[in-house]
Simulated scan of single mutants.
Amino acid sequence: MSAEEERFIESMGLFFERQGVPRIGGRILGLLLLADEPLALGEIARLLRVSPASVSTNIRQLQTSGTVEPASIPGDRRHYYVFNSVGWDHRLELAVSAMDALSRLCQDALASPGRGKRVKLRETVEFCAFYSEELSGAAERWRARFARKPGTQATRAPSPSARQRRSGTR
């Protein structure tokens, strides 16, 4: 790996650490963004000079976020991983889901006796609705933009927007 690539990988680690992701998770993302081929868990550990256990733990978290996905090489039993371009879409979906869950919590609290006049709870529900709609619109615009790029291909069907989920339409 070149010094430039190492700097990029470390910068990704620091960036994601500031976002609440362990630094090694950000470094793994940085490495996978640069990789031309799927990388095995041991190879990732060797290139980043970290333990395979740390890579394994962080890979699972990155798979949950949708930014990393497993890959296989015919005839090879090792576990390989690649950056999942559709993962950015998944991150937007997770943010929408989080806003929907927060809104439900606040709505439940508002429904409790004596809490119906809580302005902060109503403002939070309103913020969640606003933010969820904005994120849903951003996700739709991203999917359309991503699909138009040469050499890219969305591998998942678009998920329903927050408005569609609430109304039950598709």
Rank of each mutant, 00 (worst) to 15 (best):
M1G: 11
M1V: 09
S2N: 13
A3E: 07
E6M: 13
E6Q: 11
E6P: 12
E6I: 13
E10Q: 12
G13L: 09
Q19D: 08
G25C: 05
G26P: 14
R27L: 15
I28M: 08
L29H: 01
L31K: 03
L31C: 03
L32T: 06
L33E: 01
L33T: 04
A35K: 00
A35V: 05
L39F: 01
L41I: 10
L41M: 13
G42E: 08
I44R: 00
I44S: 02
L47P: 11
L47R: 10
V50I: 14
V50R: 14
S51V: 14
P52E: 04
S54N: 14
S54G: 14
N58I: 01
I59G: 01
R60Q: 15
Q61T: 03
Q61V: 04
T64E: 14
S65W: 14
S65P: 02
G66C: 01
T67L: 09
V68Y: 07
E69H: 14
S72C: 08
I73F: 01
I73Y: 04
P74D: 05
D76H: 03
Y80P: 06
S85C: 09
G87S: 05
H90I: 04
H90W: 08
L92K: 00
L92W: 08
V96K: 00
A98P: 13
A98E: 08
A98R: 13
A98F: 13
D100K: 08
L105D: 07
C106D: 09
C106R: 01
D108T: 04
D108E: 12
D108L: 08
D108M: 05
S112M: 09
P113T: 11
K117H: 11
R118D: 15
L121T: 00
L121P: 02
T124L: 14
V125Y: 01
E126Y: 10
A129H: 04
F130T: 15
F130R: 15
Y131P: 01
S132N: 00
E134V: 10
E134W: 13
E134G: 05
E134F: 10
L135N: 00
S136K: 00
A138W: 12
R141E: 15
W142R: 05
R143V: 12
R143H: 07
A144Q: 12
A144K: 08
R148F: 02
R148Q: 13
P150A: 12
A154L: 15
A154M: 11
R156A: 05
R156Q: 10
P158T: 03
S159E: 07
S159A: 11
S159F: 04
S159Y: 03
S161L: 07
R163E: 10
Q164R: 01
R165M: 12
R165G: 07
